[in-house]
Design a protein around this nucleic acid. Structure first.
Lengths: 185, 185
DNA sequence: TCATGGCTAGACCGATTGGTCTACCGATGA
DNA sequence: TCATCGGTAGACCAATCGGTCTAGCCATGA
């Protein structure tokens, strides 16, 4: 990650990336620290509750990134389907650049411990926010509300599933084929 | 797990269950051992390569379970859509029984380490086998091959995605709504 | 020039990690 | 009665885990 970021931001960005690769429990704080060229003291200064705090911050950060990608995709979309198609191709590109491995940043961070209420609540919030954002794009392009909501949820579901298949097959094709699945052949 | 199982089978069943709850890295061998009432020696006797071997065996075991559920669902299905609907309701029931938390047993076990080639290959094999099994059910109910293949893949993708949403929302509803999504409203 | 305070630096901690190793139990067959 | 052998039992290990704590750097302001 860029060396111009603050220590705090480097920790967040590297944590988000590493969690996407091997999950919350699959990455130790020592590795995040090394990747961020930061000492342990900085981590516990910026995130008093340590790894869990950092994970929540990384999930929030990733959520913002995803919403930006969504906005970019719709920046000059002719219609809703066009915007979603662009979105999928953007995400597929990112997946290609990650050695066909990195998964949904939110799931990878927060789907780890059923007993952790904070994680579970934040997961739901971020997911619902993303679905609502997609639905809003739909309404902006003339879709009726209930139809937009329904479509947005279907897109989210398909994206998550296709992303899993893409990982297993080491290919972004399933992600690129999402528009065909959701909008019919 | 049932006390009538052999030590080896208890280890596999408990490992599969625990991995579904907290992932491969989220569960220690000590915990699996305790849940299985087995000493360490037994684990490394039955699985010389330890945790990784056990995870592969657990994934295979879970795969067989899933294929049995598929067969059960289609045992007296009137048509393909009916069988898939039964399947989704069976899986939703299991999800309900797991405190709305346990995820796909294969993903949870094998989506952990990009550098582990064995895990990655087995993931693809099991997923493709499952999709092929669903496609076979489709052909048995008169679907043309390419249509059956396409539909099976769409069902797999939707199931994975809906399962994630079900976790986030602590509700099996997304899983029960899969047939509506895949076969049209 | 010195005190303050935000932040970095890393030694250190007990607990837990996955894994190894030897001892041993108990059913079997000679 | 004793040797064999599949499997169990758990002590023990180095490495790593997440986390704590003190020391100190350095820019700021008085």
């Amino acid at each position: 990650m860029s060396e111009t970021l603050s220590t705090r931001d480097r920790l967040i960005a590297n944590a988000a990336r590493l969690f996407q690769e091997r999950g919350y429990h699959g990455v130790g704080v020592a590795e995040i620290l090394a990747a961020s060229s930061a000492p342990k003291g900085s981590l516990y200064y910026h995130f008093p509750n340590g790894k869990a705090d950092l994970a929540l911050a990384a999930a929030d950060w990733a959520s913002v990134q995803l919403l930006h990608i969504l906005d970019d995709a719709f920046a000059d979309a002719r219609d809703f389907q066009d915007g979603i198609t662009t979105l999928c191709f953007k995400l597929a590109k990112l997946f290609d650049l990650s050695d066909h491995w990195r998964t949904c940043p939110i799931s990878s961070i927060l789907f780890e411990a059923p007993e952790n209420v904070m994680f579970r609540d934040k997961t739901r919030t971020i997911f619902d926010d993303w679905i609502a954002a997609v639905a809003a794009k739909g309404r902006e392009h003339g879709l009726e509300k209930s139809h937009a909501d329904q479509l947005a949820e279907a897109i989210w579901i398909t994206l998550q599933g296709a992303w899993n298949l893409a990982r297993a097959r080491k290919s972004a094709d399933p992600i690129r084929k999402i528009p065909g699945l959701v909008f019919g052949a």
